[in-house]
Amino acid sequence: MNEQILQQVGSLLAGTIRVFTPITFAAIASSFSARAGVVNMALDGIMLIGAFFAVFGSFLTGSAWLGLALGIFASVLIALFFAALTITFRCDQALAGLGINLLAKALTIVLLQAVWNTKGKSAIVNGIEMIRLDALKSVPLLGDMFSETSPLLIILLLSLICVYILFFKTVFGMRMQVTGENPAAARSLGIKVERAQYLCVMISGVFAALGGAYLSICDVNVFSRDMVAGRGFIGMAVSLFGANHPIGCLLGGLLFGFTQSLQYRLQGIGIPNQLIQMMPYVLTLVALVFSKRDTSALTENQL
């Protein structure tokens, strides 16, 4: 009996990690640009592009890591496009985001058709191999969570630490903060505001690509149309929930992953499927209700 419960909890925790990883990457991506005063509304589309090109790169070269590199490259290009539109050409961030998300969705389907002659799913490609820790396997709970660890999870945890140091312990992080909070003041201090914003949006693209690539070449090893399904927006909500702080992103991502994993476990006991599929989005709205109110970077002046 005890063993069964342990097993249930173990698979719950393993599920948590699977949901947590891409969402937290998205949350880091969002907080990176938000701190510099740009709301990366195109996050969803950038993740989708990253997911597609990671699979495409792996398909071309046979190496998942080269695929990841291509995914990052493509995502940074799209992020650069978003930066150019919003920073240089002063396009409304919501409109630019909407356009790029739509573009990414359509473009990936057209490319699916061009490469694999289908509009649904790509061929199965080589994925990033899990790191096996056999020593952990016999340990309850921890074994379920980490006996097969994705390298991207390790990258995620390392980047959380790096991002924390970058945000709060470096001159660059401080400049970023000033840029986001008061661009005019930053400019008067001699900070190159536009350049800092460009850089942050591009770094945001790197993290978005990692999140997208986790979905495609880590989780299932195929690309399917519209596979990001709003996770970019959920990531934005998580970073907002966590006040654009890496620890906040971590906790928000864990909370989100745990609740969603719990819902998947509920699927067997008669709750309609649609209700369970709806939950992440409802949860996001609830999280937004409880997040800090004065998140000026993500608020528009209009209303």
Binding site: V39, M41, A94, G97, L98, G230, F233, I234, M236, A237, L240, M278, Y281, V282, T284, L285, L288, V289, S291, R293, D294, T295, L298, T299, E300, L303
Partner: peptide, 14 residues
């Protein structure tokens, strides 16, 4: 929530 309508309406659409 004082958040951009983009997030809210996209979530609401789902």
């Amino acid at each position: 929530m004082k958040v951009s309508e983009l997030i809210i309406t996209v979530m609401l659409n789902y």
